[in-house]
């Protein structure tokens, strides 16, 4: 998956978890926290994205990402065969 595809997955899941974000024009620098997602919402969005990517990594590794763009880059780098 490309970073752009992963970004699209994250934002789609963000809209599912927090319906008022469905129509939001997401930027790479947007932070889920700043958009009003609490820690449970954020974990849910990450879990749904990992599942869609069929990626099995510890959720706690994703804590380093400060915004959606960084999260997409981090998950992209953890896919098998992808050089981070």
């Amino acid at each position: 998956m490309t970073k752009e595809e992963i970004f699209a997955l994250i934002t789609r899941h963000a809209g599912e978890v927090i319906p008022r974000l469905e129509q939001h024009a997401f930027q790479w620098t947007d932070s889920l926290r700043a958009l009003g997602a609490n820690s449970i919402d954020r974990s849910e969005i990450v879990m749904m994205t990992l599942e869609a990517m069929e990626l099995d990594i510890p959720l706690s590794e994703t804590i380093r990402a400060e915004n959606i763009g960084e999260l997409a880059a981090l998950l992209h780098g953890r896919q098998a065969g992808v050089q981070a």
């Binding site: 974990s43 990450v46 959720l59 706690s60 804590i63």
Partner: peptide
């Protein structure tokens, strides 16, 4: 503590 990290670690 870091509530986020704790939640994720609990889930893992």
């Amino acid at each position: 503590g870091d509530a986020d990290l704790s939640l994720l670690s609990y889930l893992d």
